[in-house]
């Protein structure tokens, strides 16, 4: 087997990437379209980005989305990290398997079901639906992703580092804060970024749990598109793609850097 790519490999990579990214590339290109008609090319222009700046409703929706994403990602990171620590550290407590199964269930649960069940819960509790209910729902959705990421880091964590700290006179809680936490921080940051991205682009659960006055960006976009695709939408989506892409790249770089440092620091 040579290391050079064969024609077959080049073709399959090209087709695969085209299948994944062609729609996105077209969307990005058309967001810079000067024409009012979505399907007709009218030359490069920033018209629709400028138009966005004066679209109050769209900016409000984006602001709501960002606030929900930041809030729910933070809550999910705290809860998810706690769950990961419990799962890796408490040993074989009674019901451990059930607990880990329950933590992971939302990963594979259809979003429609998660959304519907949360809606029923909020209705039963007679809570006013809006900003807070979406935040809670997104915390539920994203917490398990944080748990998976942090847990995989904790499993490979060298416990003798904690023992060394305690041996040198550091009490257990302080050991966790000064030794364990700094070393698993890249994984926690990666978890936060992923939770942030997931919350930002969720439509299904948000539309189940939203109420009057709390419109997230995906809900806003979806309702606009139902009346026909406007060029501004392309611009909004391009910005969203940029935000999510940056968050994902930062998250994966953070966890990769942690892994490389661990590798070099030796066993």
């Amino acid at each position: 087997m040579g290391r050079r790519a064969s024609i077959f490999n080049i073709v399959s990579v090209t087709l695969g990437l085209a299948f994944l990214y062609l729609p996105i590339v077209i969307l990005v290109i058309y967001s810079f379209n000067g024409s009012r008609l979505v399907t007709v090319w009218g030359g490069w222009s920033l018209t629709w980005y400028r138009a966005l700046l004066s679209d109050r409703a769209m900016i409000d929706a984006a602001w709501t989305s960002l606030r929900i994403a930041a809030l729910s990602a933070s809550a999910a990171t705290v809860l998810g990290t706690c769950a990961a620590v419990a799962l890796t550290r408490l040993g074989r407590f009674r019901g451990r398997l059930l607990f880990s199964g329950m933590v992971y269930a939302p990963l594979v649960m259809p979003e429609v079901i998660t959304g519907l069940s949360l809606l029923l819960l909020f209705v039963a509790l007679d809570v006013d639906r809006g900003f807070w209910t979406i935040s809670i729902a997104h915390t539920t959705l994203t917490m398990c992703f944080v748990t998976v990421i942090v847990q995989s880091r904790l499993v490979s964590f060298d416990r003798s580092l904690e023992e060394a700290a305690m041996d040198l006179g550091c009490p257990p809680l302080k050991t966790f804060l000064t030794v364990t936490l700094p070393l698993i921080l890249p994984a926690i940051a990666a978890g936060w970024m992923l939770a942030f991205s997931l919350s930002l682009d969720d439509l299904v659960i948000a539309s189940f749990t939203t109420g009057p006055g709390a419109t997230t960006l995906p809900i806003r976009i979806y309702s606009e598109v139902r009346l026909g695709v406007k060029p501004e939408i392309n611009a909004v989506c391009t910005i969203m793609i940029a935000v999510v892409a940056v968050a994902t790249v930062v998250a994966s770089l953070a966890s990769k850097r942690g892994a490389v440092r661990r590798e070099r620091a030796g066993a």
Binding site: S160, L161, E163, M166, D167, C170, L183, R261, A265, G266
Partner: peptide
């Protein structure tokens, strides 16, 4: 007596140095 209050110190087999 918990480990952090014992007047003994240990050198670990893999050294367990803090990488950060």
């Amino acid at each position: 007596v918990p480990p952090h209050r014992r007047p003994v110190n240990m050198m670990f087999q893999n050294y367990a140095l803090f990488p950060h």
